[in-house]
């Protein structure tokens, strides 16, 4: 699948068909560059793939869910949206813009049974983050002195999809061991 490409959008939803109850969105390209150093063309593509394409996915998913007047959408963001490092400006901008899309969706369609929630994990011991954590002793700054595990993330996502969490709509939950509160 190629993000930013309309054909990919059709392929994705052709597989889903007309029935969609939940969507968990953890898709995000990585692009690290200082703002004053970034290639304009790459920036343009990055935002198309990670913001505009996401808006198209949300539109399509929302319209499917509207038929049943029920649906739950979870967006996995990142604490980098709140506290980026130098070089993460584009990543943070895309996350913040995407968070806003999800929040507005919950604002607009909440009355029709379609709600949204955003989870911002901090350092997670998996994927892109692992190498970074090993390289720079970052966990010292985390009040719980450890990374969040992928199991914890998965269980939280399941909770967010459950009826018990239905009152949480159009908002952001942070799961970072306390990292972003402190200095």
């Amino acid at each position: 699948m190629k993000f930013g490409d309309r054909h990919s959008l059709n392929t994705l939803f052709a597989r889903i068909g007309d029935d969609l109850d939940f969507m968990v969105d953890c898709a995000q390209g990585n692009y690290e560059s200082l703002i004053a150093q970034a290639d304009e063309e790459e920036v343009y593509c990055y935002f198309t793939e990670n913001i505009s394409f996401r808006a198209a996915v949300l539109k399509t998913a929302g319209r499917i869910m509207l038929k049943k007047r029920k649906g739950r959408l979870v967006f996995i963001s990142s604490t980098a949206a709140a506290r980026p490092n130098p070089g993460q400006g584009f990543y943070a901008a895309a996350k913040l813009a995407s968070e806003a899309l999800y929040r507005n969706m919950g604002l607009e369609l909440g009355g029709r049974g379609i709600t949204t929630i955003i989870l911002r994990p901090g350092y997670v011991n998996a994927g892109r983050g692992r190498a970074y954590m090993e390289e720079k002793n970052v966990l010292e700054a985390v009040p719980i002195k450890r990374a969040v595990t992928k199991e914890e993330i998965a269980e939280t996502v399941l909770f967010l999809l459950s009826e018990s969490a239905a009152g949480m709509n159009a908002t952001v939950i942070t799961m970072d061991g306390g990292l972003t509160y402190g200095k």
Binding site: R63, L66, R112
Partner: peptide
């Protein structure tokens, strides 16, 4: 506007 959105979805369907 939300009613129109639902109407568009229903017409498509």
């Amino acid at each position: 506007s939300i009613d129109l959105l639902e109407l568009a979805v229903a017409i498509h369907s």
